[in-house]
Amino acid sequence: MTRKEQNDQFTAWIRDHAGILHKVARAYSFQPAEQEDLLQEIYLAVWHSIPGYKAGSKVSSYLYRIALNRAISWVRRESAYRRKLDQFQSAPGASAPDSRLEFLYAEIRQLTKTERALILMQLDGFSYEEIGLILGLSTSNVGARLTRIRQKLATNLKEKTP
């Protein structure tokens, strides 16, 4: 694959599937600056994965796999992050435009990294088999974990809504 072909493919994928990458970045980072950092890392991973894409397989599934793997393996230094988090949370205008969406993301961020990956893919309509292939889990394992995640989310939401 030539550099130009790789460029064109990258541009087309970002144009058509940017939502997936933004969704994953938002679920795996807490602050807008961190989301930008993670998104850049995901873009870089997508770029390097273009030659490995097999024509015929779903692009959305492929991009989800790359984005989730990058996000799951992304580790920030806790002490520096915590200081910045405290500073940012006190700043005015820190809330997202859609408060319901931000509320949902805030709940998703309370889950573990693997749980976030599972619930994000389920919300996007992936089957248990597809989720299992992406994460390297069996279909039954995926089903059992998703049941537990849904119960956890339902309990949390019930406690927080009047």
Partner: peptide, 13 residues
Amino acid sequence: ELRNFKDDTWSCL
């Protein structure tokens, strides 16, 4: 590692 992100999560980790 950059090329490995296209594999399943377990292998990647």
